[in-house]
Amino acid sequence: MEFSEEKLKKVSEIIARYPEGKQKSALLPVLHLAQEQFGWLSVETMDYVAALLSLEPVEVYEVATFYSMYNLEPVGKYLFEVCQTGPCMINGSDDIIAYIGERLGITPGETTADGLFTLKTVECLGACGYAPMMQLGKHYREHLTKDKVDAIIEECRNNAAANN
């Protein structure tokens, strides 16, 4: 378990943003980097990050379990994080969540058997004017409709096929 050369360079860049001895501040960004490279945060990954930043492993576990974006279990290649809070709810997010679940044959919290998709419900992502919406990877998919959901699923399947 080790970061790529490029990621290690990024880690030292991040640490340099803070005063001497305050490298703990780099923990959140470095966990993001780890998740980018390894897909999720295993104990082994977190222990590696702890060693990299001279922290006790429990300090990393405490932080990783606090923030909702860190995956503490493996997730599918495409993680659908659909907002369900008030403003999205009044614009029909419940139907969208149900529709995605139906299309993929899973309920929120589950991953498809082929390991491609995970469906997760999340709380407000700050895109209330563009509801209903979800996060997919780095970006938001907004103004969701059933047709758009179909197209997104199709797009993901095509991408996965092209990368294999």
């Binding site: 006790e56 429990v58 576990y61 405490e62 379990t65």
Partner: peptide, 19 residues
């Protein structure tokens, strides 16, 4: 060396060692 801490948050928060 501390090996236990507060994990998770809100009403799911717990004292634990994680592993």
């Amino acid at each position: 060396k501390r090996v236990h801490g507060i994990l998770d948050r809100g009403d799911r928060a717990e004292i634990a060692t994680y592993i």
